[in-house]
């Protein structure tokens, strides 16, 4: 099955990004396809490569990048939400791309299920 994922919260402040990641990982392990992860609202902060958590904490941004690298997951950051919050190509982590909100609607059309994670 093809899943779309929407992440509406930034990393660390809310558990949404963690749950979304665990869900994506479990779905891939079960043989499903993650069609796209779309980052909206403060969720765009998941894409900042300037993120540097303490060494004993999980690296949420790097975890997403690894998922993109190993499983070809399409990580899309909403351009309007990103510009509002200072996320631009210069500080975009590996595996992410900035695009329009149409990518979210398209994911809703193309995926079998779209699951929202947020606050």
């Amino acid at each position: 099955m093809k899943f779309g994922i929407l992440v509406n919260e930034g990393p660390y402040n809310h558990q949404a990004a963690d749950t979304a990641y665990q869900f994506a990982k479990a779905a891939i392990e079960k043989g499903h396809e993650i069609h796209r992860v779309f980052f909206y609202h403060d969720g765009v902060n998941n894409a900042s490569k300037l993120t540097e958590p303490p060494q004993d904490d999980r690296n949420i941004v790097a975890r997403w990048s690894k998922l993109a690298e190993e499983h070809g997951v399409d990580l899309v950051v909403c351009v309007a939400a990103a510009l509002r919050r200072g996320i631009v190509d210069e500080n975009l982590a590996a595996g992410f791309r900035i695009s329009g909100l149409g990518q979210l609607v398209e994911s809703g059309i193309q995926a079998d299920r779209l699951v929202t994670f947020g606050d």
């Binding site: 099955m1 899943f3 509406n8 665990q22 869900f23 990982k25 479990a26 779905a27 392990e29 079960k30 499903h32 079998d112 299920r113 779209l114 699951v115 929202t116 994670f117 947020g118 606050d119």
Partner: peptide, 20 residues
């Protein structure tokens, strides 16, 4: 359920809503 069970529930139901 664990995360795998979460995935199964999403797959088994025809639609899903998050009460944020």
């Amino acid at each position: 359920v664990d995360y795998a069970g979460f995935v199964d529930l999403v797959a088994e139901n025809k639609n899903v809503q998050s009460w944020l």
